[in-house]
Structure formats: C-alpha cells, structure tokens
C-alpha cells in the first residue's frame, strides 16, 4: 500500500504541476509580454533622466486587479521601482519586492531570474510637466513553469530537510537510549511493564508480557501524552527495535508494530501545546479551550486506529505477508 501512496503523491504532484503550468500559460495568468501602465512618482530626483533613478510605482487597486484579472488587491499599490536608463535608449526596470509588495508579484518572483525582485523593460516613458512623476509602460519578464520550478525546488529542499531532521535526532536519541539501557539493566522497565500488563496483554497479544518492548512502548506513549516529543521519538524507536527482535520475517511489519504505530499516529496528548501557543499568539481570548476537544478528537483517532489495525491484520492478504517465504514472490506494501 505504501508503494502506491508514495508513487501517487509524486505522480499526482507532477501531473497537477504540469496542469497548473499549462493553465497559466493558456490563460496567461502572469500577463507575460503584456505592457502594464503605471504612474511612478520620482523620489530621488536624478540630475537627468538619462541615468538610473528610483521612484514609487503607484497603481490603483482596480487597475491592478483588472490587469491580472483577480480580486486580490484591496488598496492602492505602492511598489519601489528602479529605472535603469541605458544610453541606447533601451531602459529596464527592477521591482525589489518587500512585505508591502502585492502577493502575486511576490509569488511570481519565485519563478523569476532573481528571487527577491522582478525585472522588466520599459516600452515608453512620459515625464509629467512638473518633473515629479512619470507615466511608464513596462513589460515584466516572462514568468513560466512556476509550479514545475516549485516542485523541483521542493524535492531538493525536502531531501536535505530529511537529513537535517535525522541528524538532529542523534543527540537526543543517544541521551534517551542511554537512559533506557540503564533502566533496562536495573530492571526498572520490567516493573513498569508489569503494572500495565492487563492493558498491554490485550493490545499486544503477540508480545510476551514481560518483554522489554512493552516497557519501551509504555514509556513512549506516556512521553507522547505529556507532550515530551523529544523523549517520545527515541523511546518509540527503542520499542520498534525490541518489537523487531520478535519479528519472524525481517523487513515486514508485525501486528504489534502496526498497533503501536496506530497509537502513535493517533497522537493522544493531554495538552496540545503547539496549537495552544499559536492560538495565544493570534490573540485568542481563551487559547486553552481546545484541550478538551483535542483529547476527544485524538481519542477517536487512537481507538479507530487500534480497531482498524486489529480488523485489518486478520485479512488474508495481510496475514499472508507475515508467513515465512516458501517461494520467491513479489512483496507488495
């Protein structure tokens, strides 16, 4: 199953990206090659307009919206602009983008030659009588294959993110695996394990009740519920390692592993600290109001996951995966 989900994510992603790019091209979403007309108030008055000068490009929301065929702009647009006047008369402009720049332009810059500005060429420039402003007709550089560029960037970025995450785990993993080893040698895990045997016996019937895996799983679930995600992951991985020692078939998930994972992905947590923090920072009158609802939601997820795991593990196609290999057959996940 994971094989299909994995290839679907990639294939759907690439197909949708292609579709979006074709649509943008057909509709000319970014108005490639279409001149945009705007008034520029000259800020740094140049000694002569034959050099480069800076100004403030002003466009009414209506003019901007009707040019791009959108409704995004709510107020008048002010965008810094630098006009480079070349001796030959071929003037160019560059629009350095900041937080006040229109969203569409910021989005377009992701596929532009420069990530933080848009460049373009000047078709015509008419100076106002008072020399304080000019009427410009500019064509912004063509923006193409926006989504394809984004997909490429994402694939590369996420590949290195994965390594960063994994390497970031090393220290914290070492700490908790060390502590767990001490607890194991001292027999502390066995005590924890014995206390919860009535529960774990039912949840994980395939695991011997005094196996170290049970202790590690209990510790992981407890750490998760307290929101100690730093400690939870190493403990969970320790549990997986112990469960794998009972695995009759290397490289295949056992029933206990899947049940354990479902408890983990249910994400039962007593205080959803991240959500509360975001609520508080966005000015909620009662950030903690979601504690109860989150516990309910996560409870639903956990129970549904465990029940689903128990039902699915009985299906012939999943049972067959665990049988020792008799003949060479293609495994599907």
């Amino acid at each position: 199953m994971l094989n299909y989900i994995w290839i679907s994510l990639i294939a759907i992603g690439i197909l949708v990206a292609a579709g979006n790019d074709v649509r943008d091209e057909v509709q000319n979403t970014y108005r490639n090659g279409v001149p945009i007309e705007a008034t520029v108030s000259i800020q740094k008055s140049p000694t002569s307009l034959r050099q480069s000068w800076e100004g403030d490009l002003v466009m009414s929301a209506d003019a901007y919206n009707s040019f791009y065929g959108i409704k995004a702009a709510k107020s008048e647009i002010h965008q810094p602009i630098i006009v480079n006047v070349a001796p030959s008369g071929e003037s160019t402009v560059s629009l350095p983008l900041g937080s006040a720049s229109p969203d569409l332009w910021k989005e377009m810059s992701k596929a532009a030659t420069n990530k933080d500005k848009l460049v373009g060429s000047v078709l015509s420039m008419t100076l106002a009588a008072d020399q304080q402003s000019a009427r410009l007709q500019i064509v912004i550089e063509p923006i193409r294959f926006m989504k394809f560029k984004a997909v490429t960037q994402a694939a590369l970025d996420y590949a290195s993110t994965a390594v960063t995450i994994a390497l970031g785990l090393i220290g914290i993993m070492a700490l908790w695996l060390g502590v767990m080893k001490v607890a194991e040698e001292a027999g502390l895990l066995r005590i924890v394990t014995r206390m919860l045997t009535p529960v774990t016996k039912r949840l994980f019937p395939d695991v011997p009740t005094d196996h170290p895996a049970i202790g590690a799983m209990i510790m992981n679930i407890a750490a998760n519920m307290l929101g100690l995600s730093n400690a939870a992951t190493p403990l969970g991985l320790k549990a997986m390692e112990e469960l794998n020692k009972l695995n009759p078939k290397v490289g295949t998930a056992t029933n206990a592993m899947v049940t354990f994972l479902c408890i983990n992905t249910g994400g039962l947590i007593l205080i959803p600290a991240t959500a509360i923090a975001v609520r508080a920072s966005s000015g909620s009158a009662n950030p903690g109001i979601i504690i109860g609802t989150s516990i309910f939601g996560a409870g639903c997820a956990t129970v549904a996951g465990v029940v689903a795991a128990r039902i699915l593990q009985r299906l012939p196609r999943y049972r067959k995966d665990l049988e020792p290999e008799v003949r060479k057959e293609a495994s599907n996940g």
Binding site: G251, L261, C262, T265, A304, G305
Partner: peptide, 18 residues
C-alpha cells in the same frame, strides 16, 4: 521495515476518525 502491511490504511483510518 519495507513491507508496512496494513499500517498505512489503519493509520489513515485513524486520521479520518480523528
């Protein structure tokens, strides 16, 4: 583990119910 068996469907059912 490369063959995850019923982990993905069970995990997604858990998410759906959550």
């Amino acid at each position: 583990i490369k063959n995850t068996r019923h982990a993905v469907p069970a995990g997604l059912i858990a998410d759906l119910f959550g």
